[in-house]
Design a binder for these strands. Structure first.
Lengths: 187, 187
DNA sequence: GTCTATAGGTTGATAGAC
DNA sequence: GTCTATCAACCTATAGAC
């Protein structure tokens, strides 16, 4: 792994753990085992490096979600496998975490990829819901967009509740709750 | 409003906007119009002042939620009025925001009140769900705890989606989605 | 109770040697 | 490409005058 690569990976970890405001170039360099010159050679500064890190995290998240949501099988099962996929719940969502950062939200270059990921996710989930309705796997009375937003929000909020509790239990409960609501009338 | 009061209020605002990591004593003092001596006279330091601010925010949140969830009326209506109460969605939840802060989570004194609030909220919502089931207003097959966690998570996740989008729309969508799921089999 | 002065460390960035 | 040296500004806290 070359230096630029190590810088991006260290930044990804620190953005996840501490956010943009809480992450200093110095901490990134220390973790990457690089000097200051390396960073300012490969990137124009903290913002530029963070953008590279955010883009990579988001590409990974989208790919992971797409595999699970595009798998063969019924819509409720695909949504279940997405919500129940293995997660390090107490670390939180590396993308959702960024939305609480004032300097990410204030900076349109940094916010844009985050916006795109959640926009894509809601559309993708809405498509799965609509497919499920067409195949009589889900209640045809549901609004696909609203249902998709509720599913995505439950996931993000589950992280919040779990971190507050210091335990993954509220996350698992929330996922159980939304899945029961989603599948109860259809079965 | 005396100096200690202004310090607490300024801290509450800044914790909401920027989190604990992103808030400096200097910024608090500037906003409160106080000098450094005042802060270290009334509080032992940043942590102590933040604790006072967090406790006050949490007391307010609990009181507001309790009024809406304890109002007369059917369970679905009370949950609806809680989820649809006026909110400054793009500012996010002042308590949920704290769960993304590494130094809040790592500090048990600061995390404790946050933990208590969400624990209380989930129990309160579960009680409302159970009451609704007893009065045949909600599907008796639902697990009250899981349903309550899903409702609380939708709220918290709604803020995340809205801030990512730069618009309250995903929040409103998520709330519509969870309420439709909750009330559809009962009606 | 509040102020200013000061401390030792960190932030994000630049300069220039190698 | 990577390093160290340096910068002005800021961080959290303490000291001590008023």
């Amino acid at each position: 792994m070359d230096t630029a690569e190590r810088l991006i990976e260290s930044t990804r970890e620190l953005l996840w753990e501490r956010g943009y405001v809480g992450t200093s170039p110095r901490a990134i360099l220390q973790r990457a085992g690089a000097g200051q010159g390396s960073m300012y050679h490969h990137f124009s500064g903290k913002e530029d490096l963070a953008l590279a890190a955010v883009r990579r995290t988001i590409d990974q998240m989208r790919a992971t979600a797409d595999v699970l949501l595009s798998a063969p099988g019924a819509a409720p099962e695909r949504i279940t496998s997405y919500l129940r996929r293995e997660r390090d719940v107490l670390r939180g969502c590396p993308v959702g975490r960024l939305t609480m950062d004032p300097e990410i939200i204030a900076n349109s270059r940094l916010r844009q990829p985050v916006d795109e990921l959640f926009g894509w996710l809601r559309r993708r989930l809405a498509d799965v819901v609509a497919e499920g309705q067409a195949r009589a796997e889900l209640d045809p009375g549901l609004d696909p967009e609203a249902t998709a937003a509720a599913v995505a929000a439950t996931l993000q909020g589950g992280y919040v509740l779990a971190r507050a509790a210091g335990s993954p239990e509220p996350f698992d409960h929330a996922v159980d709750g939304i899945l029961a609501l989603l599948t109860c009338p259809a079965t």
